[in-house]
């Protein structure tokens, strides 16, 4: 394919400008994490002259970062896995069956994306309290409450994306499995899921990232022992000081696993999106 000079210029300018935009904060984050506190409080310098890795050591004792880390991993993993499983069943139903209320179901699910979080934050808290009191299931300050909240937040997008994906899987595959005597669930698990793997990975990644970064609900639904990283990072500013270098070091630490995991899965993610959601 021939490329015009105009297109080449456009490409160079676009990529250069966006690369600077994307990388600048990441650069600042990483270099500031390698400076002593006094240096980050003064004028910004492009290179850490008093290079130190102390912030990466201090972050673990200033706040219980390790325990927040574990909390975030448990909550985000559980929420994304369960969300995907529930979304697979629901999307299969929507994609393969015509049933009463199907449209109402999909419309309602998608319209929850409009709900302003501030409107149902307090009611949700109260409902959790009531469930705790009547059923004895602790939902505030436990992983369970956060897990079911986050999995629900990601369900609408997950169901919508997987439905699109399943719609594009030829019905003939279902029929062939049925001929072989497979039940509906058997067909889903043995025939549909293997084909839909990229879509499932895409949904999994989306759900994980959403849960990993959520701030508003975590600030109300967690206590010290169940706090997640996203809100825990705020504790580096205290009554006495704002530990900018430690904030940056902790930001690097919490970003690395997600960024690496995401980048490893990105091919799947894009393939999943293009086959499912975007058609």
């Amino acid at each position: 394919m021939r490329e015009t000079t105009g297109f080449k210029t456009f490409r160079i300018v676009t990529l250069a400008a966006l690369a600077v935009f994307v990388l600048l904060p990441l650069y600042v984050m990483i270099t500031s994490a390698l400076k002593p506190l006094g240096d980050v409080q003064g004028k910004f310098t492009w290179w850490p002259t008093n290079f130190t890795i102390q912030p990466f050591i201090d972050i673990w004792s200033t706040i219980p970062l390790a325990s927040y880390f574990v909390n975030s991993v448990i909550v985000s993993t559980s929420a994304s896995v369960i969300s995907v499983i529930i979304a697979i069943f629901a999307s299969y139903a929507v994609s393969r069956y015509k049933f009463r209320g199907r449209n109402a179901f999909t419309t309602t699910i998608l319209s929850t994306q409009m709900f302003p979080g501030v409107l149902f934050l307090l009611p949700l808290y109260l409902i959790f309290i009531n469930i705790s009191q009547t059923l004895g299931i602790q939902l505030i300050g436990s992983y369970l409450g956060l897990i079911i909240t986050y999995l629900t937040f990601t369900l609408p997008f997950a169901i919508w994306m997987l439905t699109g994906y399943f719609d594009n899987i030829p019905r003939e595959l279902d029929e062939a499995a049925k001929v072989d005597g497979a039940s509906a669930i058997g067909t889903l698990i043995r025939v549909i899921l293997p084909v839909a793997r990229p879509g499932i990975v895409a949904v999994l990644v989306y759900s994980f990232i959403t849960a990993w970064g959520e701030v508003l609900f975590a600030s109300v639904l967690t206590t010290q022992s169940s706090r997640t990283l996203a809100v825990g990072l705020g504790e580096y500013s205290t009554q006495v000081n704002v530990y900018w270098n430690q904030i940056m070091a902790a930001s690097v630490v919490v970003s690395i696993p997600v960024v690496i995991g995401f980048l490893l899965l990105q091919r799947n993610f894009v393939a999943g999106l293009s086959a499912g959601a975007v058609k």
Binding site: L18, P25, M29, Q41, G234, V254, V258, V259
Partner: peptide
């Protein structure tokens, strides 16, 4: 790959870094 990084960086980490960058005198 590079362009996808900001999506994966947790929101708090990204925004707080910008806050640091937008300080008036430093």
């Amino acid at each position: 790959t590079m362009f996808l990084i900001p999506y994966a960086v947790p929101m708090y980490a990204g925004i707080i870094t910008w806050k640091f960058m937008f300080q008036q005198n430093t």
